[in-house]
Nucleic acid binder design. Structure first.
Length: 266
DNA sequence: TCTGCATGAAAAA
DNA sequence: TTTTCCTGCAGAG
């Protein structure tokens, strides 16, 4: 489930649950045993998200916990008592009031501040970070001959967009996904940036991605089914919502891309 | 119960 | 460009 909105939501949630609290940490699976031992007994300052990365700061130590969920990773949390720690449980954090389990992450490691800086340095602007600078992304896009659909997934261009947001953003702006990124004009890019900021903020509020209706504050839930929540994502073979053309699918940038070949011609 | 696929990205080649 | 990480789910049987 993790595109950028999900990570920002987790950061907010985990800050609320852990900030100012001393945590017990363990790695029943063993793969993060040394790191968990270092964290054990520390007081959490806060959790932060940048793109699809999570960072946890601690009050009494300079190291930072870095988590990247990748495709499979996920958190589960709840009130005590914690369930038996079976399976590949990479990290469990516990306070008197909450347990948080992390399974299957691509990255779960302790970094020094320089290591964190290295990761942040290779991330493009994150639409969910206030005052993030879309011009940094524009400087990359305007010179890139790769398909716009591949460029949008490149985290060093924009941080936080995943396969759902890229397909939906391209549809909403009628862009041919296979056209070179450099074909965009600056005005279009600014409109796309404003749109992805609004879409992802709505995603944080709702806890899910919905691109087919306005980001209305009062309608937290949105459409009942996934099919109604998207214009093109995973709708291959179904009729386009706007003109009825069959939605297509192809591998672009290493992931499956969905688009309407008649609506998206700009 | 089994199989294939999935919202990601680094390492290997 | 391909492989690997190795979880969870939906759909088939």
């Amino acid at each position: 489930m993790p595109e950028g909105h999900a990570l920002h939501r987790l950061a907010r949630q985990h800050t609320g649950l852990l900030a100012g609290r001393q945590v017990s940490a363990s790695s029943p699976q063993g793969r993060f045993a040394a790191g968990a031992a270092r964290i054990d007994g520390q007081t959490v300052r806060r959790a932060r998200a940048r793109g699809k990365h999570l960072f946890y700061d601690f009050a009494g130590m300079p190291e930072i916990l870095h988590v990247h969920l990748g495709l499979y990773g996920g958190f589960v949390s709840g009130p005590p008592p914690a369930p038996p720690s079976g399976g590949a449980l990479r990290l469990r954090l516990e306070t008197d009031e909450i347990w948080i389990d992390l399974r299957g992450p691509t990255a779960c490691e302790l970094l020094d501040p320089a290591g964190e800086k290295l990761i942040l340095a290779r991330l493009g602007p994150d639409p969910l970070v206030p005052r993030a600078d879309p011009a940094r992304a524009w400087q990359r896009l305007r010179r890139s001959r790769t398909p716009i659909a591949a460029a949008l997934l490149d985290q060093s261009v924009i941080a936080g967009i995943g396969n759902v947001y890229r397909a939906e953003l391209l549809f909403r702006h009628r862009r041919d996904p296979l056209a070179p990124a450099s074909r965009l004009d600056e005005e279009t890019w600014q409109a796309m940036w404003a749109d992805i900021v609004a879409l992802m903020r709505a995603g944080v509020r709702r806890g899910r991605i919905v691109t087919t209706e306005p980001a209305d504050r009062d309608r937290r839930s949105g459409p009942a089914s996934r099919d109604d929540a998207y214009y093109v994502y995973r709708r291959q073979g179904l009729p386009c919502r706007l003109d009825g053309t069959e939605i297509r699918v192809a591998e672009v940038g290493g992931r499956r891309l969905y688009w309407c070949p008649t609506c998206q011609i700009l």
